[in-house]
Simulated scan of single mutants.
Amino acid sequence: MYIAITKQQLGMNYKGSVSDFVNYLKKENEDKSLELQEHFFDQYNDKVSPESVIAEIDGNTAKLSQKDPKFYSLVVSPSPRELKHINNNSEQLRKYVREIMKDYSDSFYRDQKVTVDDIKYYAKLEHERTYKGTDKKIQENQPYATKILQLKNEIRNIHQGTITGNIKKLEKEIAQLEKEAPHQQQGKRIVRGMRKEGYQTHIHIVVSRKDRTNSFSLSPGSKYKQSETVLNGKIVKQGFHREKFYKAAEKRFDIAFGYNRNFVESYKAKNMFIKDPKKFFATLVGLPSTEKQMAFKLLHKAGVNIPNIPTNKVQLAYNAFMKLKKGVGKAINSGSIGI
């Protein structure tokens, strides 16, 4: 499970409408019949119009300045293994979102307990992802893409008569490069904008910075988990505990769907990798055989080249450690192993 929380970002200010973001999220419904379209939903309603989402979020910004984000974006991305476990069931995912939003509200540190009914949010499922320039497969295919573009430019120049050359020979070189590119999908070189194979369902959640009554601020961007300040002579509690939220969301999935989470899929593993990489790898190689085999399989699927690592923790080779550390770091950062 990979969850990201980001604030509205429009240059240096935050005065813009949520409309651009909402319209972006509508893109997947284009050219789809009504029964196949995914709608915005909230805690109690399965269908909320995009116009209502815009009006509700934009109209819920009392006393926020241009320097304050008006809304936050949460992206909840189950791993392909998690999606397969629930058969990529959209209704199950909607129920899951409604449960983790209870955990989201419970992660705020306030004088009065924050409940899900205090939160103004709208969510939407998306089932497709496309390759971006930052994807590892695109980057590793790039030398081939660059050479192919050069050859196509040569062919164009030959047609225009600015240079001479053998077009058939150049086309043959292009065909060969297309086949040699290391990353292919359905027999074609993977390029930017190409849809990714397999289960890619994820959920976008737009959350208002203000509570549902437009009275007080609820910012998940707070740098404090728990903090107390004095305001008008009174002690005021503030803060948001992200780690508590991430752990709760993971636990929700496992309990709700009976999911047997492997060590490398866990938030605990991600945290351990960031804070103490050596402990992460020592724990990895010390796992029971069956779980360790699955962990290495998941890492391999994420594109991590697994070196030969001694099973004895003490004998963990430094060079192997460094190679694996680099690969796992990339996989964790991209969320490709479901962490």
Rank of each mutant, 00 (worst) to 15 (best):
K132Q: 14
G193T: 11
E291D: 06
D118H: 14
Y144Q: 05
E250A: 00
K223E: 10
R242H: 13
D46W: 04
S49K: 07
F108W: 09
S90K: 09
K275E: 06
K268L: 03
F263C: 04
N312G: 03
S90E: 14
Q293N: 12
I158K: 08
H39P: 00
K95N: 15
K179E: 14
P288L: 04
Y72M: 03
S227H: 15
Q160W: 06
N232I: 03
I148S: 04
R156T: 12
K70A: 05
I3C: 02
V328Y: 01
V285P: 00
N157W: 07
E35N: 09
S52I: 12
E126I: 02
T134V: 11
L324D: 00
V236D: 15
G187A: 08
Q139V: 14
H39R: 05
R81S: 13
E250P: 00
V75E: 06
Q184F: 09
D46P: 01
S227Y: 14
D68W: 13
V114S: 12
K270R: 12
L64Y: 15
I235W: 13
M272F: 01
D135Q: 10
P220K: 11
G239M: 01
N260V: 03
Q43I: 07
L25N: 14
H159A: 04
Q142W: 13
P277V: 06
I339T: 15
K292M: 07
K188H: 14
T6N: 08
F108V: 01
N45M: 05
V236I: 15
F273C: 02
V48C: 05
L324G: 02
Y44N: 13
L83V: 08
E197N: 13
A145I: 11
N141K: 04
K95C: 12
D118E: 08
Q315H: 11
G327M: 03
I332A: 04
G233C: 07
L298G: 00
Y267W: 10
K234A: 10
I255T: 15
Y131M: 05
M1P: 00
S90V: 07
G193K: 06
N60D: 07
I309V: 12
I235Q: 14
T115V: 06
F240C: 02
N319C: 03
S266V: 04
N166H: 10
S90A: 12
